[in-house]
Design a protein around this nucleic acid. Structure first.
Lengths: 343, 343
DNA sequence: TTGAAAGCGCTAACAG
DNA sequence: CTGTTAGCGCTTTCAA
């Protein structure tokens, strides 16, 4: 691509106007009334030359990058968790619709990263979406305090921060399992405790057990690490308990898949011997054997809303609500449910 | 973030040198021998001020963006196919390691898109990775002919084009199924025919059937569309055939998952009634019920190699080979295999 | 070995 | 309503 690209100068020359006018037309600057004829001449000239503005020059001059940064937990989330790609997809779509690019920044360790700083200070992005931010992330707090546009997903850290989160459906899950008569309900988290959402699912699980006067016991809890593999191993470990659980609440569907494999491999039936509930309702959840009971969550909507909120923020438009809470819903399938009632 | 960011000017002032020197030090320009003392003064000044170069200014001046563009088939690939996110992950990782950002461009219709053009002409990227490029994509060909760095994944269009592809393992799959005695083997593609890889899997399937003098019949073929859902429906349709297939070769694992659900829902057993083979060996494949026989493919390696090749291309370094072909391997699990032999 | 200075291509005051 | 012009912050050639 050594070929000289056309510049706004050439477009101006061809259209017989100044570069200013070209800029006005191409950026659709409001408050300027150009005759349609001029406008058309410019547009025609631009398309004839195949003119596309140089992004860097535009950014340098305007201070806007038309790019948003998406920060997530490195390899784990992208390689394994089926929720994230769908979130990404809708974020890409909505961003594109509004003329924004998305830069994805994968972060290994949230506690010692310069990911935000370099992206923000290098003026590469106009705003930030952070998935599952760490509650103690100081750098993020500083950025937000300084007024940098940011939308957090999944975790509410501070009510003033802009966020899109899901309402929890842990209570319906636990009510359902307890209603079926289960008394030894195990839990496998989908991530370590430093991921706030994973931790919250765990503590909610414990709270609802307590409220139902059921056994709250650490021997019924295991920590997964995003992958089906980790769910598989966690379940194997749970099956070694003296008193086996009669039900499992998995931190997410991927964990549940691994756990189901471990259960069936041990010669136990789902749900007759052990009922299983997941979380997220990934597209495959209805195609497991048996189909997985889970909580349906809206990744596409979450991505879209986060993108729209961030863009509003970037454009300094008023935000209706700083915190959007999305509904989630228990979806009962065969992996737990009617079957047990007939026992 | 209204706070004025420090510029190279201020770093220069603090270090008592010129901006040129700052630029030399920060960019590690070779062929310039600066005394370590100067170098250190600059580095110290930069870190004291928290200086991060303005990306746009740097790009404008240097002509380099340090960004690569990744083009894929919109929502479908990202939301559904488990292969893509893993590829992305490794591409992100390797890019980051070499100081490159990644811009993801999702494309709806490869036949009428300006995705490449705007990204390239807007000088937003230094190079391009295209996943499953369309064989007839003229725009892409023009770009490559013009010498723009590009690496294609999954599809070989022209031997001269840089690409990272997988060796096919269709033959081992078909050999295995045929060796087990199957005579009516069905196939569900993972995408429509315009995706070259999907098409190639189909034609290979047909070729090996033919070579084995087995029935090649369009009633045994269905077209899926990435999702498990589409595999599910395709299988339901296959099960309506007068002569049911005794084995299924699914275009990928996600399709296989849906198909397995349809088979089991119809009251049939896997592999006793119908054997199933997938493609990709997604992380969940060993946790299906029964575990899925499939072809293991190396998304992480593919992403890494593509990234490295592209960066070599961008930096005009010599490329060892224009085409990298990765090995794939049949992984036999219970969804087809030993079981049938005992029948 | 270091510094001066000329752009890179665009935007957006400001002037006309 | 349109054109002139001064930067935006950096890289890099050339000269000192």
């Amino acid at each position: 691509m050594k070929a000289k690209r056309p510049t706004s100068h050439q477009v101006a020359a061809l259209a017989g106007v100044s570069r200013t006018t070209v800029s006005f037309v191409l950026n659709n600057v409001s408050g300027i009334n150009l005759p349609d004829s001029t406008r058309k001449r410019v547009l025609d000239a631009a398309s004839e030359l195949g003119y596309v503005p140089d992004a860097a020059a535009r950014t340098l001059a305007s201070g806007r990058t038309q790019t948003i940064g998406l920060v997530l937990h490195g390899a784990f989330q992208l390689e394994i968790d089926a929720y994230i790609p769908r979130l990404l997809s809708s974020l890409f779509t909505v961003s594109k619709k509004h003329g924004f690019q998305v830069i994805v920044e994968t972060v290994k360790d949230f506690n010692k990263t310069r990911a935000y700083r370099d992206l923000v200070r290098g003026k590469q992005i106009d705003g930030l979406v952070v998935i599952y931010p760490n509650s103690e992330d100081e750098e993020l707090s500083e950025l937000i305090d300084a007024g940098f546009p940011a939308v957090l997903l999944g975790t509410v850290r501070h009510p003033e921060e802009h966020s899109v989160v899901q309402r929890s459906s842990i209570k319906p899950v636990m009510d359902h399992l307890i209603g079926l008569g289960h008394e030894r309900i195990a839990h496998i988290t989908f991530a370590a405790e430093d991921v706030a959402v994973a931790k919250r699912r765990l503590t909610s699980y414990q709270r609802y057990l307590q409220e139902a006067k059921l056994e709250v016991n650490d021997t019924l809890v295991r920590f997964g690490n995003y992958s089906a593999e980790s769910g598989y191993r966690a379940m194997q470990s749970l099956l070694k308990n003296a008193h086996k659980p009669t039900a499992l609440f998995a931190g997410n569907d991927t964990i549940a898949l691994g756990a189901m494999a471990a259960i069936q491999e041990a010669g136990l039936r789902i749900p007759e011997d052990i009922a299983v509930v997941g979380y997220d309702d990934i597209p495959n959840a209805r195609f497991t054997s048996p189909p997985l009971t889970t909580v349906s969550t809206p990744p596409l909507e979450q991505g879209r809303l986060a993108g729209e909120m961030l863009i509003d923020l970037i454009k300094a438009r008023p935000i209706a609500q700083r915190q959007i809470r999305l509904d989630t819903q228990l979806v009962v399938r065969r992996s737990c449910g009617a079957y047990l009632k007939t026992n």
